[in-house]
Design a protein around this nucleic acid. Sequence first.
DNA 1: CACACCGCACGTGGTACCTC
DNA 2: GAGGTACCACGTGCGGTGTG
Length: 213
Amino acid sequence: MNSITQVMKFRRSMVEYALKHGVTKTAIKYNTYRQYVYRWLQRYDGSLESLRNKSRRPKHHPKAHTVAELKLIQNMRRRNPEAGLVVFWVKLRQRGYSRSITGLYRTLKRIGMTPVKPPNPKYVPKPYEQMLYPGQRIQIDVKFVPSACLTGEAKGKRFYQYTAIDEFSRWRYVEAFEEHSTYSSMIFLVHLVQAFPMPIECVQTDNGPEFTK
DNA sequence: CACACCGCACGTGGTACCTC
DNA sequence: GAGGTACCACGTGCGGTGTG
């Protein structure tokens, strides 16, 4: 961001004062050091911009990627535009590249060669399919019954409530089991088929392990 | 791929010293 | 005393590797 900071305004006020009244007086007035005034006087070209802090980014680094390494990366990337980071790194290593995978990742990012991840497709809710007759589709779900809800003999035990709801008529069938297993699910389904007064065409579950194993 | 950590370069603030 | 300069300490930011 290139906003004008309070520090820049302070420096301008200071150097303008120094141009009129001298460095020593300025340093005293602005509660700073003569060297500080000199430095900014030297930098000042009449614009606020000249009083902005410079970037501290090192102009070179002893361990930076070499020109040869960057060239290798760019050439290989052009030939393997679809390769994932790890695969790409392995290919580079086969050609003598010795940097770490994270070093490669950062370099790719810096030179703008990271694979562009397509954004997740926007979720489009499916329109609800209205049921036309009883038994067309029945929803089943299992819920653990909290111990606080148990009274009398049931106290201290664990229960799982199996619930089935017919989507057309909202007819409901509920049964409790002490275990949450495919066996219980099977028993529940048998009881459900017996209890429901019409043939059941389709059963929909939440893909829980009790139904899928 | 985000984060922690280390090493290095750079800019800035500040001190000390010299000259006139 | 005021002007000018060399140098040092420290913070910041980037580059690297390692880890989970």
